[in-house]
């Protein structure tokens, strides 16, 4: 469903076609955003079952009403310092599109923050930090209410993910 369809159906959200909505969450003091239409649900952290011989940031798998959903710790995915999970630790379950299928993956974040409307004009491409910094999963930066949001391209999050997995498997 895209924004203009919502508009026509009279749900009454004040959006036009250049505006996308983003759900933001906190991670080590920074605010990140993901396309809200990809969010399947938000749930509290429950312990996951470890999958042996997988990279550290794969926290394990969880039972989401009968389907097995892998859980990614976003802090360690971004090579940030890990913290203990608390009662505000949440899992954002996202639908990720890969070449031939759609996968459901949970991401552990510090806390969920807000929902913002971001128009195309507000969206700035991420600056080139050189090859040392991986930015392939950053869609762009946006300034909303004097705050900087880092908008993530979640499909590329999993692309990069698979590459890393493969290199980890081959030692």
């Amino acid at each position: 469903m895209n924004p203009e369809v919502r508009d026509e159906s009279g749900i009454g959200l004040d959006v036009d076609e250049n505006v996308n909505q983003f759900l933001t969450f906190m991670l080590a003091g920074e605010e990140y955003g993901v396309d809200i239409l990809r969010v399947q649900e938000i749930k509290g952290w429950e312990s996951a079952t470890e999958i042996p011989n997988t990279p550290d940031y794969i926290q394990g798998v969880m039972n989401l009403r009968g389907t097995i959903v892998p859980i990614v710790d976003l802090r360690s995915r971004f090579e940030l310092e890990r913290i203990d999970y608390s009662n505000t630790t949440v899992v954002i379950v996202l639908k990720i599109k890969t070449d031939d299928s759609e996968k459901t993956i949970g991401f552990v974040v510090d806390a969920v923050s807000d929902v913002y409307n971001v128009s195309e004009e507000q969206l700035k491409p991420s600056p080139d930090f050189g090859s040392g910094v991986s930015t392939e999963f950053v869609k762009g930066l946006a300034t909303v209410d004097e705050k900087m949001l880092i908008l993530l391209d979640i499909d590329h999050l999993i692309d990069a993910d698979i590459d890393i997995n493969q290199s980890a498997m081959t030692h």
Binding site: I51, P52, V61, M62, T67, I68, P70, K103, T104
Partner: peptide, 27 residues
């Protein structure tokens, strides 16, 4: 038997996963 590949990928040593009586996942 539940597939691990649906949302993740094939894991060496595992043929799948299942959900136990207490709702947790076991390989």
């Amino acid at each position: 038997i539940k597939s691990l590949e649906t949302n993740y990928k094939k894991v060496e040593g595992m043929s799948g996963a299942t959900i136990l009586g207490d709702g947790t996942v076991a390989m």
